[in-house]
Design a protein around this nucleic acid. Structure first.
Length: 249
DNA sequence: TAACCTTTGAAGAAG
DNA sequence: CTTCTTCAAAGGTTA
């Protein structure tokens, strides 16, 4: 009996509730400890300048954002541009995080945001929920907006990414990616000499870089490709996690 | 002017 | 089978 068969047998024998509980534990372990609660926005949505921790998809709190740099729903043009999806011209944006009170009252899921209608400057009564990730009941408490959207944040009308503060030692942990030591690599002779050779075809990531570099260069107003590639690499990680999560569940 | 930086994926080499 | 190494692109920076 191969591993796939064994795995399928185990899945078939599991109680759905137990399976959900196990998945919840695995997800909690993947996401790590929850960050401290965000401070609710003040009256008339005057932004608090207090920073909040930002967690990446490896479960590492490695940066801080000002509270006004709230994550956007996928409906926001900036988010759409980041995710490279086409959206019908929206008339409203998502603005502030839901307060802890609303969380506890069960009025919002953690990854939902009140709607901000730019035309009337009023906050909508009910949030939309058009995210591509659909979590089963009981798992949604593991999601935080900044986790789900990764580096996609900003305010209505903001098309560039504000600077991210330095990592806090309190929330830092060693990177889980395997680090590559580029310094030890030497170029192949075939790449250095003048003799013609067949170049390696670009992989999917290289094609993605080639396509998205102009957009990120424009948005960040930065021509440093090392930085631009780093940003795009993070976006790929975010997208990969989103679609992996969607596929898995 | 060549190498480096920086990313992920692919492929070949080596153990 | 696993791990390591190199190179695809790009343009600014460094030696």
């Amino acid at each position: 009996m191969d591993l796939n068969t064994v795995f399928q047998c185990l899945i078939d024998q599991m109680d759905p509730e137990d399976m959900l509980h196990t998945a919840n534990e695995v997800l909690s372990e993947m996401l790590g400890p929850k960050p401290p609660s965000a401070v609710p926005a003040g009256e008339n949505f005057e932004f608090d300048t207090t920073s909040q921790p930002v967690e990446d998809f490896n479960g590492v709190y490695d940066a801080y954002l000002p509270l006004e740099a709230a994550p956007l729903g996928f409906q926001h043009p900036a988010a759409a541009a980041t995710l490279n999806v086409e959206l019908p011209a929206p008339s409203s944006y998502y603005l502030n995080p839901v307060s802890d009170d609303l969380y506890s009252q069960g009025q919002y899921f953690p990854y939902q945001w009140p709607e901000y209608d730019a035309s009337t400057a009023a906050i909508g009564a009910l949030p939309h929920l058009n995210l591509p990730v659909e979590m089963p009941q009981g798992l949604e408490q593991n999601l935080e907006p900044v986790v789900l959207l990764g580096m996609v944040y900003g305010n209505p009308g903001v098309t560039s990414f504000p600077p991210i503060g330095p990592a806090s030692p309190q929330f830092s942990s060693p990177p889980q990616k395997r680090e590559r030591n580029y310094h030890q690599y030497k170029r192949q002779p075939c790449a250095k000499n003048k003799q013609p050779y067949v170049k390696k075809p670009p992989n999917a990531f290289m094609l993605f870089l080639k396509e998205q570099r102009p957009n990120v260069t424009r948005d960040l107003e930065c021509r440093d490709n090392a930085l631009v590639n780093k940003v795009l690499g993070q976006r790929v990680s975010v997208l990969g996690c989103i679609y992996t999560t969607k596929f898995y569940f």
